[in-house]
């Protein structure tokens, strides 16, 4: 069962929820795009349901709400420190299926990778509920169906925006009373069954093939094409890498704050070690690292789905028009080539 109400009534119906929750959703920022007179859609705290951009996929992902680009961990003065405080209110996060699946992957990295769980991530996640945004199949960079990320049942409310009205479905009884006087309809969320873009990911059968794949010349193309800007990883909902940075307010280096800030495996210096040595100092090597992480290493480690949810943002944001789907097709061909050679030998 679901509900139906028009735009004008939305904020009145959500008013209790606005009181209790901070609501984050994709929002259009006019003319803030990379090129002039283009817009950017990014996550922001909203004050009205009608501010939300429902139809165009956001340029930046929902991860920014749980894992902000800059996040203060603690403040320090001499030998004392104080932890940054957690958000005061619980969060209601509007997201499409790919983004909800991606947050689960973020959670794997922040909470299940290694001995301890990251408190900064957990303190937000445990206080957060999802509003599932209806997705019509996205744009021509989306391939969530290929990545099995088109479906989720991790939501409290599901919403669909029509021309003048919203359709709502409620799974979490906490919210039922807010909408009980609305007109009822039989809305329940539908999930994308097909994207215009699709990809088949070949499994890498063994370490030997993996090693040959790493040496394969097809990667070298990216030395010429990729400018190592990091736009792909910043916008990627499943990239989690960060670096820590101490901010020093004045001449006294003992007073300041420790932040974590996104890092990108695509940007030069990502893996620079104390002795200045970099392991992957070519764009092709960094590209290989990213691609293998998304479509091999993560799955190897966690024995689940691949890391990539197929949201297509890395394709959409790349200023050099590099498509990760084409890269995967090239990788598939390289794997075939390696396997065929092995048979012949």
């Amino acid at each position: 069962m679901g509900y139906k109400f028009n735009f004008a009534d939305a904020d009145r119906l959500f008013c209790n929820i606005f009181d209790k929750y901070d609501i984050y959703a994709p929002k259009k920022f006019p003319k803030q795009g990379r090129y002039s007179d283009t817009d950017i859609i990014k996550y922001a705290k909203i004050n009205s349901i009608n501010e939300i951009e429902f139809h165009i996929k956001s340029d930046y992902s929902a991860k920014e709400v749980l894992n902000p680009i800059n996040e203060t961990l603690f403040y320090f003065i001499e030998n004392e420190f104080r932890e940054s405080s957690a958000p005061k209110k619980p969060i209601l996060l509007f997201a499409r299926p790919c983004d909800i699946n991606a947050i689960e992957i973020q959670s794997k990295i922040f909470e299940e990778n290694g001995e301890f769980s990251d408190i900064y991530f957990t303190r937000i996640k445990n206080n957060l509920k999802f509003v599932l945004m209806d997705c019509n199949g996205g744009d021509d960079t989306c391939f969530c169906v290929s990545m099995n990320s088109n479906f989720t049942d991790n939501w409290a409310i599901a919403i669909k925006q029509l021309e003048n009205e919203y359709l709502l479905s409620i799974k979490d009884s906490e919210f039922t009373s807010d909408f009980e006087n609305c007109e009822q309809t039989d809305f329940s969320p539908e999930f994308v069954q097909q994207n215009t873009l699709s990809v088949n990911i070949k499994e890498i059968p063994n370490k030997e093939v993996l090693n040959k794949l790493k040496e394969h010349p097809f990667w070298l193309e990216y030395d010429k094409r990729c400018i190592s800007c990091g736009s792909c990883t910043v916008s990627c909902p499943t990239c989690t890498c960060f670096t820590t940075r101490d901010i020093i307010y004045s001449e006294n280096p003992k007073v300041g704050e420790r932040k974590r800030v996104y890092a990108s495996c695509q940007i030069e210096g990502f893996d620079q070690m104390a002795g200045q040595k970099e392991i992957r100092n070519k764009a092709s090597e960094r590209m290989r690292y990213k691609v293998l992480h998304k479509y091999h290493d993560y799955k190897e480690r966690f024995k689940t789905k691949h890391m990539c949810v197929g949201c297509g943002r890395c394709i959409h944001r790349c200023p050099e028009a590099i498509s990760i789907v084409s890269t995967l097709e090239k990788m598939n061909n390289a794997i075939d080539e390696i396997l065929n050679k092995d048979i012949q030998e």
Partner: peptide, 29 residues
């Protein structure tokens, strides 16, 4: 120290190269 960009605003020509280069939209027009 601050992990921030500083700008000598008087001499900026307003070209937008910084916006194009930024991977996070930290610079916008």
């Amino acid at each position: 120290n601050l992990g921030r960009i500083e700008k000598d605003a008087c001499c900026c020509v307003g070209c937008g190269e910084c916006v194009r280069a930024c991977p996070t939209s930290a610079w916008t027009r």
